[in-house]
Simulated assay, not measured.
Amino acid sequence: MESKSTHTELSLKIVVTDGHTVNPGDLSWDQISTFGSLSIYERTSPEIVIERCVGASVILTNKTPIDSRAIETITTLKMIGVTATGYNIVDTQAAQRRGVVVCNVPAYGAHSVAQHAFALLLETTNHIGIYANSVRQGDWQRSIDWSYSKAPIMELQGKTLGIIGFGNIGQQMAKIGFAFGMRILYCSRTKVDSDLAHFTSMEQVFSKSDFVSLHCPLTADNREFVNRNMLGLMKPGACLINTARGQLIQEQDLADMLNQNRIRAAALDVLSSEPPSPHNPLLTAKNCIITPHIAWMSREARQRILDTTAKNIEQFLKGSPINVVN
């Protein structure tokens, strides 16, 4: 079913433009449907946003863009709820001009995203996928030795983990790294008191770390800041990890550095365009692991998204909106 509707006695009309990723069917929309008439679409292309959302007081979107035209045309609109932390898909200035409140869901996935970032890191050091596939193909059965090597394994004890952005996810990443016996460096807009990590400059993080993990938001100032110059500071044996935003990286520069063996590996959960173009240079770059933007996707994290979204609507209706980003 592309969409479904539930109705209560309330007159509030709520439209979910792209509910499939947050809730593909294993969770319930019931707590949100209590606020009014709820229409849920699995996906909505930009050109039919207005058509589907006409008459809506609340629009809930995950990745469907809500632009100035939609905000100005849907005159009934009072609130936009982004079912994610990043809200760059909404024209927040247009919303502010019209008095439309925009809310997001902060801090829902710190544990899940850090867990995935570290899983990517471990794949670059232990190569579980390579070895599991080798066994599945019969290499161990044919081996003349009781153990064999397909790729070098690295111990993390004593290595340096550099973290760019030290919010909830960055701090959780530091805790995991510290548990592995790693030295932790971090760079952030503001210094955070931490017994686990040492605050330093961006350049020091890139030049001193064996692993650099990105956990900062995308802003106008840091788009593609991980470029040839910044990557050139990294050790030849270092690895870049990105579970933040793909636009933080100049992708051709990273592909070139990988293909030229200037850095050891990259492990990415995000790309500049998603789904990626078949011509994205990272898809064929050497020693580049890519997962399809799934770090946030644990069931527990998605349930927190729905819980917080319901709370955002409730507080908005009470006249005390929370998690407002405009």
Rank of each mutant, 00 (worst) to 15 (best):
M1A: 08
S3P: 00
K4V: 15
E9S: 14
S11Y: 10
L12E: 05
I14E: 08
V16H: 02
T17P: 10
T17Y: 12
D18E: 04
G25P: 08
L27W: 01
I32R: 00
F35Y: 08
R43A: 14
S45M: 07
V49N: 07
V54L: 14
A56I: 02
S57R: 15
N62D: 13
T64D: 11
S68A: 15
A70T: 07
A70K: 02
I71S: 01
T75G: 11
T83H: 05
A84H: 08
T85A: 09
I89P: 02
V90S: 10
V90N: 06
V90A: 12
V90L: 15
Q93I: 15
R97V: 10
G99F: 01
G99I: 02
C103E: 08
P106S: 08
Y108D: 02
A110M: 04
S112T: 10
H116W: 10
A119G: 12
L120K: 00
L121Y: 00
L121I: 14
L122C: 07
L122N: 07
T125N: 10
Y131T: 10
N133M: 01
S143A: 15
D145K: 05
D145M: 13
D145F: 13
S147L: 05
S149C: 13
K150T: 08
A151C: 08
Q157F: 14
G167W: 03
G167E: 13
I176Y: 07
G177D: 02
M182N: 04
I184G: 07
L185S: 06
S188D: 13
R189P: 10
R189W: 02
K191P: 08
A197E: 14
T200W: 12
S201Y: 09
V205Q: 00
F211H: 02
F211T: 04
V212G: 08
S213D: 03
L214T: 07
H215Q: 12
P217M: 00
A220C: 09
F225H: 04
V226A: 14
L233H: 03
M234V: 05
G237Q: 11
A238D: 07
L240C: 13
A244C: 06
A244E: 01
G246N: 04
Q252M: 12
D253P: 00
R264I: 03
A265N: 00
A267G: 14
V270L: 06
L271M: 06
S277E: 11
S277K: 13
H279G: 13
N280T: 01
N280D: 04
A285M: 14
A285D: 02
K286L: 10
I290G: 01
A295F: 08
M297E: 13
R299P: 01
A301S: 12
Q303Y: 09
R304Q: 14
D307K: 12
Q315W: 06
G319M: 04
